[in-house]
Design a binder for these strands. Structure first.
Length: 151
DNA sequence: GCCAACGTTGGC
DNA sequence: GCCAACGTTGGC
């Protein structure tokens, strides 16, 4: 089993939306590194922290789980979508997505500020300056460390 | 295949 | 809204 952090702007789609929807497809990924992780590494049952970015208090707000492994993201074929990609062919889709289900919203988030202040978490990819991947992988140890800080 | 210009991300 | 950092694009 693998562990991940998914980033999203809560104004666009946050943990509260997922709680209400119960599950969602993680569409709109248009970065090759992230696509490759979804395609090659992500498995049903993997655990995912839900991180809120570009918001007043950035941090980890919830937990979800992969319910469907990578499959074609339909928004790439929709000319009206902001994620439309005219160069992607339906017989060979360029962009993929996974499905996740809601598991938990934490009573208190683990904030970016707190993560930065902790030596045992300082190596996390999400904290690294200039990191622009919307999905990063976590070791089991890091997943557990974070879990201990949340309820 | 290099690299400048441009666009996007995301914390502050 | 600023700006550092980085990915992508396209001319050569």
């Amino acid at each position: 089993m693998k562990y991940w952090i998914f980033k999203s702007e809560p104004d666009v789609y946050g943990i509260d939306h997922l709680k209400e929807d119960k599950k969602t497809t993680w569409d709109g990924v248009r970065n090759y590194q992230v696509r490759n992780m979804m395609r090659d590494l992500m498995k049903k049952g993997d655990q995912v922290y839900f991180y809120h970015s570009s918001t007043k208090i950035p941090g980890i707000y919830g937990l979800c789980e992969i319910t469907k492994e990578a499959f074609a993201d339909p928004s790439q074929f929709d000319p009206k979508s902001q994620y439309f990609d005219s160069k992607s062919k339906s017989e060979d889709p360029r962009w993929l997505m996974v499905e996740v289900k809601f598991k938990k919203k934490f009573k208190k988030p683990l904030t970016l500020t707190e993560m930065k202040s902790r030596k045992d978490l300082s190596h996390l990819k999400i904290l690294q300056r200039g990191n622009r991947l919307s999905i990063t992988e976590l070791s089991k140890n890091d997943f557990d460390l974070i879990a201990k800080s949340l309820s």
